[in-house]
Design a binder for these strands. Structure first.
Lengths: 214, 214
DNA sequence: CCCTGATGTGACTGGTCAGTCATATGACCT
DNA sequence: AGGTCATATGACTGACCAGTCACATCAGGG
């Protein structure tokens, strides 16, 4: 957590600094992100940075936390209905993931890098990863009781597949329909009219049929 | 490609150097791998390294190339039968991938890092990535003519799913049955007796049912 | 025994980095 | 005007890095 001095900064200056730090960590991995570059770009002295943050790691953790908060907010907007079909829920989750990636590409990049490529092997990350897995595993268990997932399928394995596809799908779809990404960003719902929507639905259907009771 | 002097080195010394370089690049990403550490560990002078390689990038490219050769060799052993069912072929590919990971964990690590996490954005890597995609896309096209894949499924999308699952599955399975990995390594075929084999088959079946003609 | 060409060597250069610290600035109170 | 406290500053330290280069070593031929 940043020091008090950071929060005492005028709102505008703090936001400006965060934007620059975000850009730096989005375009370089942890080892290559440079505090020297950040402060130069933000127009503050090196020493000032160390009045705000204990060290580089603290800034990084703070950015990750901001990202997690933003994403949690994204995923919380329409509260999941209790006994929704889990594939519908999965579709909703994946779609929200894409929306998040469109709305916060830098945060997405930082988060993606944090989970992939053994940067940050801190307990914190291991823990986040594990809880994502158990979340999906619970989803699978629910799917089994609903009868929409074959009871013989290994729950952890199915969770792994969900997690993997959800993690990678957004980036893939965006890379396929890059050109007018900004347009779709303007109106959230328009994503479903985009050419990506069909690909999106196909993916969910493949999982649905693939895991459905035989 | 290394300089001639490198190949003039006595076999033993060259191998020893490569082992150390491999370990370094497997445990650090490109930016953090250190030539200074490598030469110190290998017991050669910094200057000598630069008699063998033009620069750090050349060593890295060489290691990647060695990895690609080894993997190609792994995937070439039983020549794919002409009109094998493509899911059987996919299963074989994935299994060969796991075998490779067991046999050459360091090469796997380096290769994985190279494709993930925008290290090495050199044309070379983009190209390798693209050719992997078209390879899978062709496989999907073949599956459609065989009737084992629904004609309505987007070929590129299916290729993406194949590629993603194949890439991640090995690591996941190995992480789930870590304890006696070394045992299975001893005899290649014994993988199919391992507890991972069932998970493995389930995965292929999910894709098979998921993509099968409706 | 010396010459020559290939190979080995490690101190050195110039660069970047994270983090520190003595000093300066400014705000607010008395 | 003086005093006190929080904050700002950037030169500096020590560390590491990739890559260089003048020099040492060694092998084999004449």
């Amino acid at each position: 957590m940043p020091k008090e001095t950071f929060f005492n900064l005028p709102e505008e200056k703090r936001q400006h600094f965060l934007e620059i730090a975000l850009a730096e960590f989005a375009s370089h991995d942890y080892a290559n992100a440079s505090i020297s570059r950040i402060v130069a770009q933000a127009g503050i002295a090196k020493g000032s940075f160390y009045q705000y943050f204990a060290d580089k790691a603290e800034l990084y953790r703070y950015l990750l936390e901001l990202g997690a908060q933003q994403k949690a907010q994204f995923l919380a907007t329409p509260p999941p209905e209790a006994d929704m079909d889990i594939f519908a829920y999965l579709a909703w989750l994946a779609q929200a993931g894409v929306q998040f990636e469109l709305a916060h590409p830098q945060l997405s990049q930082i988060g993606y890098r944090a989970v992939k490529s053994g940067d940050v092997p801190s307990e914190l990350m291991q823990q986040a990863r594990a809880s994502a897995y158990t979340f999906f595993a619970q989803l699978v268990a629910q799917g089994k009781t609903q009868g929409s997932i074959d009871a013989q399928i290994d729950e952890e394995l199915a969770a792994f597949i969900f997690h993997t596809i959800i993690t990678e799908l957004g980036g893939y779809l965006l890379s396929r329909v890059e050109e007018n990404a900004a347009d779709r960003l303007a109106d959230g719902r328009s994503f479903f009219d985009s050419p990506a929507a069909d690909l999106f639905n196909q993916t969910i259907h493949i999982l649905q049929f693939g895991m459905g009771a035989r």
